[in-house]
Design a protein around this nucleic acid. Structure first.
Lengths: 127, 127
DNA sequence: CGGCATCCGCATGGATACTG
DNA sequence: CAGTATCCATGCGGATGCCG
């Protein structure tokens, strides 16, 4: 069980407790719709703020900014500001960000592969 | 690009548009903290409601019920009611649920592997 | 263009209580 | 024990406006 501490949250000593609380915090940060969609949209590319806004269907200006700050703060994306006019800001996944992307890829793939099963399940569930 | 439609949302015909909208809906359902933690907690085991409540640190009665209903509706968990008194309700991941769990595992593993990097990034970000 | 602040409606989610 | 319903606070998230 890889994630014992993350899940059980009952570490015995102070260091473990700190690490686990940090892990929970990070997991809560990234386990949200917009963050995952942003990571997936970036992929291997470098995108500007406005390009990202187009790629991530339905995201608002505010949510995009907010999540990008969070991802930058956690070292998942790199933010490069070009001091031109008009301003040009580019976002790129860092190495850890790209590592996480493989997990997001799996989730997206899973979603597409199970569309049929889920539709069936919903029908059976009574909707 | 595995997830073109999920990400871009610009399908040309009606069927693709329907499938994509369904995919987005499902992705939004599962890309949330509690759903992912519940899936991870279940793993290969079968757990009762109250056991699950203990395993998933910090989840409220209401959130657990709500997310379990959602996961059941989408066919990710199987809900078995034993008509005893007191009642006994057991939850188990279905095959698709277990498939998704591998992705969640990767996310959890990623979190632990990058704790150090993230702490460093936060320091650099000024906090 | 990108970022930040403000306002504010509404859904989210906690607490509580009641049923089978 | 598990589920549902109700109440209620708060915080998420959209809209708008201004600034570098």
């Amino acid at each position: 069980m890889v994630t014992k501490q993350l899940l059980k949250g009952l570490p015995e000593d102070a260091d473990l407790r700190r690490a686990d609380s940090l892990a929970r915090e990070i997991f809560s940060d990234i386990a949200n719709k917009w963050a995952l969609l942003i990571i997936e949209a970036l992929g291997e590319r470098t995108l500007r703020f406005s390009e990202l806004r187009n790629e991530v269907e339905g995201v608002s200006h505010k949510m995009l900014t907010q999540n990008l700050r969070m991802l930058e703060r956690n070292g998942l994306v790199d933010r490069k500001v070009h001091p031109t006019v008009p301003p040009r800001v580019e976002y790129t996944l860092t190495e850890p960000g790209r590592a996480l992307r493989t997990a997001v890829d799996v989730m997206c793939e899973w979603t597409h592969q199970h569309l049929g099963h889920i539709e069936g399940a919903r029908g059976r569930f009574e909707g």
